[in-house]
């Protein structure tokens, strides 16, 4: 029987040496490594995804807060305008009220009995 053979090159020799370990043991090691790497990648991806999602939610909430602050400021502005003395005066006049003249003011002097002083002050 004739056999075709060629001398092994240096690279092939080292490869052959590396595969000298029993085949099933080597395969198990590779599979385990691949699974660990995949799990770690998955974990990282899940974490990144979660952080990104929460970051996005945070941004949304921050935007909402800004919007609410703007609305709050606008409402405060409108309240201040409605409470201005000019606005109050106009509403009072519309209700038929009249500004008091100094000569219409009446002062009542109330003499407080010393025993009732505490109650009077508390009021």
């Amino acid at each position: 029987m004739a056999v075709y053979s060629r001398p092994l090159s240096g690279w092939s020799r080292s490869k052959a040496a590396a595969t000298a370990a029993p085949r099933p043991q080597r395969a198990n090691l590779l599979v385990t490594l691949a699974v660990v790497a995949a799990l770690m990648s998955l974990l990282y991806l899940v974490q990144v995804g979660r952080v990104s999602t929460q970051g996005y939610q945070l941004e949304q909430l921050s935007y909402k807060r800004t919007q609410l602050e703007r609305t709050n400021q606008q409402l405060m502005y409108e309240i201040e305008q409605a409470q201005s003395l000019d606005a109050v005066r106009q509403r009072a006049l519309a209700l038929g009220m009249q500004p008091i003249r100094p000569d219409q003011t009446r002062y009542l002097t109330i003499k407080i009995h010393p025993d009732s002083r505490w109650t009077a002050e508390a009021r």
């Binding site: 703007r70 400021q73 606008q74 405060m76 502005y77 201040e80 409470q83 201005s84």
Partner: peptide, 9 residues
Amino acid sequence: GGVLAMNVD
């Protein structure tokens, strides 16, 4: 306490 100057957007 009446507001004389404030900020709005």
